[in-house]
Design a protein around this nucleic acid. Structure first.
Length: 558
RNA sequence: CGGGGCGUAGCGCAGUCAGGUCAGCGCGCUUGGCUUGGGUCCAAGAGGUCGGCGGUUCGAGUCCGCCCGCCCCGACCA
């Protein structure tokens, strides 16, 4: 492709509406354009990237037996899936089976914020697997999990697998992310912040002493109370009131040094609807805000965090304005209707698995795996002729978001650094100077590279060296070749990798051999890289090792 | 869908408070010339019903009203 005729051009200035780095670069490099808010045209370069990603997704789905369909509306809409199951799956002989499709989806109700990261229209790779029973789904699950891992690895996207109640989410940590995640600094534990578990610190158990009422004026907060009484906050009990939609008051008790995770609380209660109780409701329940006590409280549902077990002789409210109780112990002095983990994890807390420190990061989901999707009336006949429900798993990746995520992880100040697997072109050929010798040689090289079936973006424009190099860096094709009168004097060509400083000059007659060597080393075919654990891929990109033949530029990213 | 902000040339912006030499700047684009290894320089040029409708006024980009669109923060999602 000649850059002089490429449809879509680069932008020097950053569009004012683009906030995130990936959005800015995708616009500036001429990958996408917004015809309207939140929807995007893929320009010539962008379409090529998308096509490559789609192909990677297809390969991985086909590798585990997936069959591609194309359905109207959305695949996950229950009616469509249920209808499909009813009509196509009748017998146990047809199970298990895996279908998938790649299509655009609309999410009109949401505002687009960060370009392709969250567009109103996006490109979904969705898959469904159908099984005889839960065991069948569980047996299959590792295969789809691995396929997803492979897809992300192929795109050079470093993801974190977050466990959910029904499967996994693959996320990337990034500033533009809308959700907060807790990650272990040592092991691979990862979870949504609201759902994350952690190892709660213990307080040395003491001999239980008799309850004692003490005056604590103006101690309506845990901090004030702990300060006044002279104990650490972890020796206090915090009382918080919630109300369900029906107006039922829920009394929640947790050790004073922890916060409540409303998500965990909802899960413990089995109720999705929960709000803070009003003062009137608290009084009506017979409690005193600021001095509420779990001791001898009646008529309300009492939920306690299991941290009440980790300590003794707590300071708790006396249910009387201006007074607290010392030496409150569980279960001697109060009993909870529900005793569960409802504490909110925070950065610095201990990992539930390895006790290392948890860190907190914003992130965005790029893919999900869910077990136990429902489809009304989707039944099959088993060997005995009995109708049984089909067990379904559903899986998805937003390929548009995937592109944005890759750019977030692969860029520098000059522009995008495409991983070779999804780069719009393999080679960016630059010719400098308008003298006929250089142009003629460049045309010849371009023709030869095309004949060798390389994907070449050829900058044949009459532009200065600075413009050409800057555009090349912005567009981010991994391999750049430069021809000029300078190199031609030695019958040579310069070769540069986008993610490395510096370049090398090689003789023109060894160019085909060098390209063959470099481009054959795509990571999936490269034995040295197959054994690399996923988490270490990123460091490989940045700490490239040197090659061994005449061209010493590292091929790791190709 | 709530709260805040912004709509002036393809892009980025100034001008609006204090109505009248106010249709401007930079980039990009076109033409010619000089350059030719990191967004060169010079010259000439094209391009805008100042988001829309209505109002106030001798006069509106500027003031008022309504509408539309967009951006940010929430809510919600993938």
């Amino acid at each position: 492709m000649r850059l002089s005729t490429l449809f879509g051009h680069t932008l020097r200035q950053v569009p004012s509406k683009a906030q995130t780095t990936s959005h800015q670069l995708l616009l500036r490099a001429g990958i996408i354009r917004p015809p309207a808010a939140g929807i995007y045209t893929y320009l010539a370069l962008g379409r090529r990237v998308l096509r490559k990603i789609e192909e990677i997704a297809r390969q991985e789905m086909e590798a585990i037996g997936g069959q591609e369909l194309l359905m109207p509306l959305t695949l996950t809409a229950e009616e469509i899936v249920a209808d499909l199951c009813r009509k196509e799956i009748e017998s146990y002989r047809q199970l298990p089976t895996l279908i998938y499709q790649i299509h655009t989806k609309f999410r009109d109700e949401y505002r687009s914020r960060v370009g392709l990261m969250e567009a109103r229209e996006f490109i979904a790779k969705e898959a469904l697997s159908f099984h005889l029973d839960s065991k069948g789904l569980n047996d299959f699950y590792p295969r789809i999990y691995q396929a997803y891992v492979n897809i992300f690895h192929s795109c050079r996207l470093e993801t974190v697998a977050v466990e959910t109640e029904v499967g996994h989410e693959f996320i990337i940590p990034c500033e533009a992310g809308k959700h907060t995640f807790m990650l272990c600094s040592e092991c691979d534990y990862a979870a949504h912040a609201e759902e994350a578990e952690f190892a709660k610190t213990e307080v040395p158990q003491e001999v239980e002493r008799a309850v004692e009422k003490v005056a604590t004026p103006d101690c309506k907060t845990i901090a004030a109370l702990a300060d006044y009484v002279g104990v650490p906050t972890k020796r206090t009990l915090k009382a918080v009131f919630y109300a369900t939609e029906g107006g039922e008051v829920v009394f929640v008790v947790i050790r004073g040094d922890f916060k409540i995770s409303e998500t965990k609380l909802k899960n413990a209660l089995g109720s999705a609807d929960l709000r803070a109780a009003t003062e009137e409701e608290i009084f009506a329940a017979g409690a005193v805000p600021g001095y509420a006590s779990p001791v001898a409280v009646g008529g309300v549902k009492l939920v306690a965090d299991n941290s009440v077990l980790l300590g003794s002789n707590f300071v708790a409210g006396a249910n009387e304005d201006g007074y607290h109780l010392m030496n409150v112990n569980y279960p001697r002095d109060f009993r909870a209707d529900i005793l569960a983990d409802i504490a909110q994890a925070q950065a610095g807390y201990a990992c539930p698995r390895c006790r290392s420190q948890l860190t907190e990061t914003p992130g965005i989901e790029v893919g999900y795996l869910k077990c136990g999707e429902r489809a009304a009336g989707a039944l099959y006949l088993d060997q005995d002729g009995k109708a049984k429900p089909i067990v379904i798993g559903s899986y998805g990746i937003d390929l548009a978001r995937l592109i944005a995520a890759v750019v977030e992880q692969h860029q520098d100040q000059r522009g995008i650094i495409w991983p070779a697997s999804i780069a719009p072109y393999q080679i960016h050929l630059v010719v400098l100077g308008a003298d006929e010798g250089a142009m003629a040689k460049a045309e010849e090289v371009y023709a030869n590279l095309n004949a060798l079936a390389y994907e070449v973006l050829y900058d044949d424009r009459d532009e200065s060296a600075g413009v050409k190099f800057n555009d090349a860096d912005l567009i981010g094709v991994p391999l750049r070749l430069t021809l000029s009168h300078r190199t031609l004097k030695e019958n040579a060509i310069e070769i540069k990798l986008r993610w490395k400083e510096g370049y090398e000059t090689i003789a023109l007659d060894v160019l085909p051999r060098e390209l063959e060597r470099l481009l054959a080393l795509r990571w999936r075919k490269h034995p040295d890289l197959q054994a690399v654990p996923p988490g270490e891929l990123m460091s490989l990109f940045t700490n490239s090792q040197q090659g061994t033949t005449t061209c010493t530029i590292c091929p790791n990213m190709l």
